[in-house]
Amino acid sequence: MKKEITLKINGEEFTKEVEPRTLLVHFIREDIGMTGTHIGCDTSSCGACTILIDGKSAKSCTILAVQAAGKEITTVEGIATTEGVHPIQEGFKENHGLHCGFCTPGMMLRAIELLEKNPDPTEEEIRWGISGNLCRCTGYNNIVKSIIYAGAKLRGDELPSTEPVFVE
């Protein structure tokens, strides 16, 4: 039996009927038509489907759409403002934090919560913080750099160098 749910996605309210078994990621991608949230593993492991639910990072392939009723959801489509891209987006762009880009939306949403809780994380804290997000391209170094950059930008500190780091 279908259920009617009302929820906010990126500030906009939606009311829709869904089957209880509909996964939130499918609801966002197929019913709402926002395809920035990706499906990587479909088994709760890769973090490509990460979104924010009431500010908390969550794997939307492991949550039912009905569970999101009454909640506020943020996807990658909702992080830029009229003023421009979000500092985390700028960080990824400036530091070459992506290659194919498949993991990037989930990685950025996760990083947003991480920086909210811990505005000035160490490299180790960042690596633990993104341990639920897999990237098959970058080798993570530039992702860590991107998050450090975004942290500095959000704090209003001097921005770190975006020059590539060569490992001997």
Binding site: S57, A58, S131, N133
Partner: peptide, 12 residues
């Protein structure tokens, strides 16, 4: 907690 899955799983 630090060893259970990852931050997203621990949020739920």
């Amino acid at each position: 907690a630090k060893l259970i899955a990852d931050p997203q799983v621990r949020n739920f």
